[in-house]
Design a protein around this nucleic acid. Structure first.
Lengths: 196, 196, 196, 196
DNA sequence: AATGAATGAGCTTTCATTCAT
DNA sequence: CATGAATGAAAGCTCATTCAT
């Protein structure tokens, strides 16, 4: 009956349904049923279904970005230590809150209307980390945006493979291997730069 | 007027629209309009809209997998050479047929009903390549499915970043860097294996 | 605005339209228009158009059978008195609620999918009545199912003839003649039984 | 390849499909498939689907009426003998050409567009027979149209019951009982006439 | 005559949204 | 605040009919 509880239940139900069956495939009827409220009540809390999606995404995305940023800042040491901590965090999030994680993956690829990449997207954070490491001579000269993409891909794709079943286990168990792989990836020889 | 031409135009229009606006978001009316045919005509060639999506995906996915497999087999040398050729191929495909490439990425993430991962999916192909390299001692002992996922992610994510605009340039220009990164990634030290 | 009123108006409109133009020939648009509601509203009350037809038929058919059964039970006397009362009832129903009656006739002949003959169909009720009359020696030995069919036909066909215009008058005026004819029909000499 | 053969195959296929699944429920695609011709070919032989239905119905209905009429004329004796012969004929038709018979029953009840009851409908023929029998004092004074309807119902309803499964056997076996019942029906006492 | 691809109006059904209670 | 019946635009799909070959 308290308005906040209703809102929270709706958001939780929405997150689960969106992940389970997709955003477009989830109807307001589904949402109301799962949240245990009336369809009309949705519109007391959100202007539209799109608004609900946006709210959900922005909120979680911002929090996720902030967490990732904080971990990067608070972790002592060089890029390897920071990378390791960030990857540990992402893997733990996947294992502990798979629904939330999958939602972040899902809406990243969905043509989300009117949502511009937040300034604290993982890609931006990784790029900053890599740029600084290059400046400080920790890793060789390279395209930071490309490197950030590859690192992100090496983290995200195993998660997707787990979801789709082509990989089995827990992300946390893979964290050391992924971190090690990313560190190596960033130090790959750049002979081709000479050629280009 | 030949039935084949109609079918081809429909498939082309569908590919473009699905990539531009998403599968669910594309209506049969949109499809008919873009293909320059009547809505009813769609159903002379496909049982349903879902059937059209499935057909499109399977056909292109199978061809893509077959091409990737052939390149792997025909390229002489070790895993590095093969990887380089496969990545070159994928990057060239992205640059030359961006719509097709984006469709493959798109439907891979959409929870496409009734489509089981083909036996010739990129993940499976990369895994096979990596498994053999491990057997022959080219690269250190490691989880081949995880490694394949990371390699795939390091290729796919830059493509996605290009699409979303957080990265600029052409994939082909990135191919050498990506290949080099993947080779390094597969040779990352495995200290953690001792610990675990 | 009360849901029940809407439902009732829809059912009434449907009954009339189905009788006037046939079930398949009546569109959901027709239904909504006649009931004074939106097309979508139909689906708040029935799962599908078929479901509406089924509901309408079952409900009225069951009530009709129950009424017929009750009249048979409550009428004192032998088979002739009971027959007379039942035929009176059916004729009165035809005169007073022609639409309902015609609907019952209509859907009886339409190959209505998924509707099995109710246990209280007129045919079954007449057969029971005839079987008991045979047992008690009121009427000669004969095939009760066949006799029930003939009796039913002798009642129904005049109604159809009235509808199609090849007969004029009111059913109630015909009731005595029909009842008398049915009583005679059930006592027809069975010479052929000896031959067979 | 001869045009007549095509036409015949189409008519046969149509008769069967109309009986099996109903007129409206049978599509031109169904018709073409069953007849082994192209959909467009239908329109070389009939102006429209409705035209095909009309053609089928009129042709068979006329022939049926003519046959019934001839039997009535050619059978020597009184109304009982004639009735017996006509009922024998109808029962035999049911047993030998059930599809044709069911089609005649089916379209009689369907709201057939633009088809007026033919002058040689069974109802008309029976009415004539009964009228003459009354004139000649063979059977008591009574409403000939009503009597004809009841007789027709006593013949038709058992056929319907056989189709719907609430009666089992062959119509021909029932012919004697039906004829006897009809003869009795026509001689039912008319006390009520005095009252009315 | 026959074909069969193409048509497009019209069907049933869905669903985000509104609003009187 | 919450409800849930009602809405109606728009979706996917069907099918009698046409017409170039």
């Amino acid at each position: 009956m308290p308005a906040d509880a209703t809102r929270r239940r709706l958001r939780t139900a929405a997150l689960e349904l969106f992940v389970e069956q997709g955003v477009v495939e989830t109807t307001t009827r589904d949402l109301a049923k799962k949240a245990g409220i009336a369809e009309g009540t949705i519109y007391r809390h959100f202007e539209s279904k799109d608004d609900l999606v946006r709210d959900l995404f922005c909120d979680h995305y911002v929090r996720f970005g902030a967490d990732l940023n904080r971990i990067q800042a608070e972790t002592a040491g060089g890029i390897d230590a920071k990378l390791r901590a960030m990857i540990d965090f992402m893997c733990r999030l996947y294992d502990e809150e798979p629904t939330l994680y999958r939602f972040l993956l899902l809406v990243q690829h969905a043509a989300l209307p009117n949502i511009r990449t937040a300034p604290t997207s993982p890609a931006v954070i990784f790029r900053g980390l890599i740029s600084r490491a290059i400046e400080q001579g920790e890793i060789p000269e390279q395209n930071p945006a490309l490197a950030a993409s590859m690192v992100l891909g090496a983290i995200i794709q195993p998660a997707l493979s787990l979801i789709y079943g082509s990989l089995t286990g827990t992300m946390s168990n893979f964290a050391p291997a992924i971190a090690s792989a990313c560190s190596a990836l960033l130090r790959a020889p750049r002979q081709h730069l000479r050629a280009a």
